[in-house]
Design a protein around this nucleic acid. Sequence first.
RNA 1: GGUUUCGUGGCCGAGUGGCUAGGCUGAGCUCUGCAAAAGCUCCUACAGCGGUUCGAAUCCGCUCGAAACCUCCA
Length: 499
Amino acid sequence: MSELKIYNSLHRQKEVFTSLYPGHVGMYVCGPTVSGESHLGHARPYITFDVVYRYLQFLGYKVRYVRNITDAGHFEEEGREAEDKIAKRAQLEKLEPMELVQKYTNLFHWAFLRFNCLEPSIEPTATGHIVEQIEMIKTIMEKGYAYESNGSVYFDVKKYAESHDYGILSGRVLEDMLESSNRELDGQEEKINNVDFALWKNAPPEHIMRWPSPWGEGFPGWHIECSAMSSKYLGKQFDIHGGGMDLQFPHHECEIAQSEIAHGELMARYWMHNNMITINGRKMGKAYNNTIKLTELFTGNHHLLEKAYSPMTIRFFILQTHYRSTLDFSNEALQAAEKGLQRLWSAFEVLQKLSYAANGQPINEELDKQVRQWCLECEEFISDDFNTAKVLANLFELSPVINSIKGGQVKMHELSEETFQLLQKTWQNFLIDILGLQPETLTNDNSKLDGVIQLLMEMRKEAKARKDYAASDKIRNQLLAVGIQLKDEKDGSMTYSIQ
RNA sequence: GGUUUCGUGGCCGAGUGGCUAGGCUGAGCUCUGCAAAAGCUCCUACAGCGGUUCGAAUCCGCUCGAAACCUCCA
């Protein structure tokens, strides 16, 4: 078995993965801010890390996967006024903040269930861990790396950098940042240095979400929740910390600094960052006003969409690219993904129905060897920093072999029984278990419809038998018009598929 | 301005210094009553200019272009 190699953002290189505790893996992934609906860009990290989670489990690790829900309302710069993002939307929609948060949390769960993402082991909320966050801030203050100012608490980055490497993850140089702050941030005048970041913020009167603290009423700072919750559930040091590349700085850099002071250890050993989804070459994000929400994607209800795209199409679309590359959205690309997935899926269905039958004929050594190689390479590829693109390419290489066995161009006996079983196992393991693809048509348990179609197929067979092609074509064409495709198989039988 | 990354055939996208990635589209053929599906075949790219090397899309330099981060952000 090949070793698992992970690209560690911390060292900018691929490293062989070993877990802190044999047989166990602790993984933390930055979850959604539930102040609005998830869009296509959000699908990338959760699908990426779903595959990581699945593969680690496939390898036999017992994985504790923690993914937070940010429901405490971080800051948003709107004009000159800093407001609580969640509180603001709540007022607009005349909802309680927690009602709003619940709504978007539910929507998030619904969408990622459709993506066939496994649920994390623990999904902690920021609001549920205010106490832990306050305790951690107190510890940092006691150690002298944070100071209070007007009811807010800031982390002293300059002091931290004297004895620690601030910028270890992002490659930033503190001296550069001390000078080059060209932005006006709220509360800047309260800080000793502009690079200091908030651990706790004093809540202005209009701020709805607020909690009592040793420094007065307020709310937690931007980064503290991940440090507090990851250490609570995974320990002071754990194996993998994941998230989008855009979180590398400042979010993850700040997490490292806080945790280092509070716990005296580097919080995570492997840092993984997925790249962005772009649209017209630009990052998809709220700030750019170019997002396509998942609900819009699933329904096709968006001016940039030519049609609706199913959750599995999107999952496949994302997995066809390596997670550290940007992925550009376009209708053309999505439609190509849709067709490709369809092809892969039908090959899988064929493969499942095949069973090995030897008849004493000789094995086609060359083909057998090639098939075996394609199968075995899948593990090599996924182990190489989760190269799902290459795994899929190999499954595509195997598809013609499978279809040819069904079509008769290749005889079953040309493969050894061992190879055939490896083939079946490979598809099950990779397509289903690791890449997490699933049939779209699971909802088709309507036996009544099936009965109707069986009847029509029977009538078509009869028409064909008496060479009444007008009638047989009518049945086929009209069914196709409503999305049911009939296929004449080589052996004279008929099958159908619902689009 | 600083930090970092990227620039691959019609489109999307892998990629190791030397051997066809793969998908989608397009063309042809086989199969078929005709289709569809499937199979086979074809369309062979690596921003530009230098350099290192027996050999570079892959290493180095420069130029041009694009993006991300430096601010909430997946």
